[in-house]
């Protein structure tokens, strides 16, 4: 009995390492393909810098007006904006480039070929591409904002960092789930551009600490569509604003969301293969 379980764990672990290795090959492929188009690489960076400038406007306003939200000082707010900026970069580089492709896969039948591969289809579709250039400006600028905000608000540099990083990872998982769900509509509709647009404008709600929103919106954004987990919980953790329950939710939400995404994905693929075209 226990040896069976052990074998199962082992198999799961093996599969896990296989997937990590496979992901490594994806990254390597994307790097070498990215080098092919240096112009696009630099343009991608330029685009992100333009977006950063737009974000900098908010920072400007925060400091110019010496904005205090509840107990949060402008430096604390910078911490939030930095986290948001970094998560945006990671989302763009790791997920967005894949999610927008789903529609094309369905239209040109690439999905059919991917379906015959002996690895998880969801893995192949949702993580195949990694854009190296796109996230660089956001991640670098985000990290800088976090560092400046952290330092200026006099936060200690201790175990906090580990907690912050762990919550960022959880936030990444939430990002994956939340942004993949609307992309799945591609199985149903030919045009999903508008839905993506809405999803992105909701994403931008993370631009500022969630405290600026009315209570009911905060509840929705934390517990129903957990967008606010993405860039609020990590800074709130270092500011000691998270209760134990919040931390548990921060860990549970990505898991629940992943289960939901998995379920939707399977349904979508099943309906795809029984409808066909």
């Amino acid at each position: 009995m226990s040896t069976g379980l052990l074998a199962k764990c082992r198999a799961a672990l093996d599969r896990g390492t296989d997937y990590v290795r496979l992901y490594g090959v994806f990254v390597k492929n994307c790097l070498s393909a990215g080098m092919e188009y240096r112009f696009n690489f630099w343009m991608g960076i330029a685009v992100e810098i333009a977006f950063l400038c737009a974000k900098a406007l908010y920072i400007l306003i925060v400091y110019q007006t010496d904005l205090h939200i509840g107990k949060l000082t402008p430096d604390h707010i910078l911490l939030f904006i930095g986290t948001y900026t970094m998560m945006t970069g990671l989302y763009m580089g790791l997920f967005y480039v894949n999610f927008i492709r789903l529609q094309q896969y369905i239209r040109d039948g690439t999905l059919d070929l991917l379906m015959t591969k002996p690895v998880s289809l969801q893995f192949l579709v949702s993580l195949r591409y990694v854009d190296i250039g796109l996230p660089v400006p956001n991640v670098v600028a985000g990290a800088m904002m976090i560092a400046v905000g952290w330092h200026r608000s006099g936060l200690p540099l201790n175990g906090n960092i580990a907690g912050f990083a762990a919550l960022l990872l959880a936030a990444l998982a939430v990002t994956y789930g939340i942004m993949l769900l609307p992309a799945l509509l591609a199985f149903r509709f030919v045009q999903t551009g508008a839905v993506t647009e809405i999803a992105h404008s909701i994403w931008d709600a993370n631009n500022m600490p969630l405290d600026i929103f009315p209570q009911w919106l905060q509840r929705i954004g934390v517990y129903i569509i957990p967008v606010f987990l993405i860039s609020n919980y990590a800074p709130k953790f270092v500011l000691n604003e998270l209760a134990m329950g919040d931390i548990i939710w921060a860990v549970a939400a990505p898991v629940l969301l992943f289960v939901l995404v998995r379920w939707c994905w399977k349904r979508a693929v099943r309906s795809y293969s029984s409808a066909g075209s």
């Binding site: 306003i61 904005l67 647009e197 809405i198 404008s201 709600a205």
Partner: peptide, 27 residues
């Protein structure tokens, strides 16, 4: 698409209004 574009306008406008609300309240 136009209708959805209008609907999605609600979000940035709403978020910005909330930001300004916070700004004016704290100032």
């Amino acid at each position: 698409q136009f209708v959805i574009g209008l609907v999605s306008l609600v979000f940035p406008v709403g978020i910005q209004s909330l930001i300004w609300t916070a700004v004016y309240r704290s100032s």
